[in-house]
Amino acid sequence: MKEKLLQIKEEALKEFSSCDDLKSLNDLRVKYFGKQGALTVVLKGMRDLTPQERPIIGALVNDVRQNIESSFAKKEEEIATKELAKKLESEKIDITEPSKDCEKGSFHPITRVIDRLSDICVEMGFEVVQGPEIESDYYNFEALNIPQNHPARDMQDSFYITEKFLMRTQTSAVQVREMEKRKPPFKIVSPGRTYRNDSDSTHSPMFHQFEGLVIDENVSMADLKIMLNTMLTKLFGKGTKTRFRPSFFPFTEPSVEVDVTCPNCGGEGCRLCKGTGWLEMLGAGVVNPKVLEMSGIDSKKYKGFAFGPGVDRLAMIENGVTDLKLMFKNDIRFLNQMK
């Protein structure tokens, strides 16, 4: 009996070790532990043993069973692991296939610049405001110290609607409205669409401006310079410099043209800046006291400064767009590069 048991054990361990799939493993389980299984048969034979033999053989049976069972369990896990690996391998996908449900559009470059500038200015204490685009001659011109038939009107070609109304030529019109409405001190910016009767490679009949106005008892040309430097540095990055050149706008005196170090070459000189290292970026100045007075602000007490970059040009420079017409074509081959 003892020999039989040892033989079963040896045979079983041998068979288990050579088994490599769950089905044959199961067959083996039946072969040894099933109703007619080899071990079961031996156990049945226990009845015929003497009481002295029983505990000895019993212990041996247990030992053999445990041995086979643990070997079985080990084998079972081994096979399961192998089969899982096989399954995982078979489920492998091509990770370069296209993604699903992930389409994304983009903001227009003009919006990007307006949003950036707005964020920068709000941080500096400016309030973002809006005004009408169909504007009266008064707000667009008269109140900005550009009376009827004044030579300064030659600076802008307007789209007129009636004698009184026109498509606003500058967001500066919003300045006057805000000065009438508010009590100083205040700081406002007003982004928006503007219109001029002009269309060529550098002019679009509709374009965008970003007007800024500060009214306070104590602001000067120096504040204007620092403010613009801060704003443009945040927009174009560290190392950006600005410089003033004298200019003329009827609503500011002194008036300046503001140049910024060319963001394309960092001031080294390139095709964009025609080798000068500088780009003309915006007009600005100290608000003309005549304008303050017309809007009901005491020019003896308060000073102000104003600035107005052209957004479209900024957007073109920021994104390397060379054709102005592309900005309003809304071709998705252009827009999807803004993602």
Binding site: S118, C121, V122, G125, E217, V219, M227, R243, F244, R245
Partner: peptide
């Protein structure tokens, strides 16, 4: 200033709105 030279503003030792009142920024 135009004859004195605007380059006087190139290296200002001055901080933003140094003498102006504080205002709170706001979006529309």
């Amino acid at each position: 200033i135009r004859l004195y030279g605007y380059d006087v503003y190139d290296d200002l030792d001055y901080s933003l709105f140094e003498n102006a009142k504080v205002t709170v920024g706001k979006y529309d």
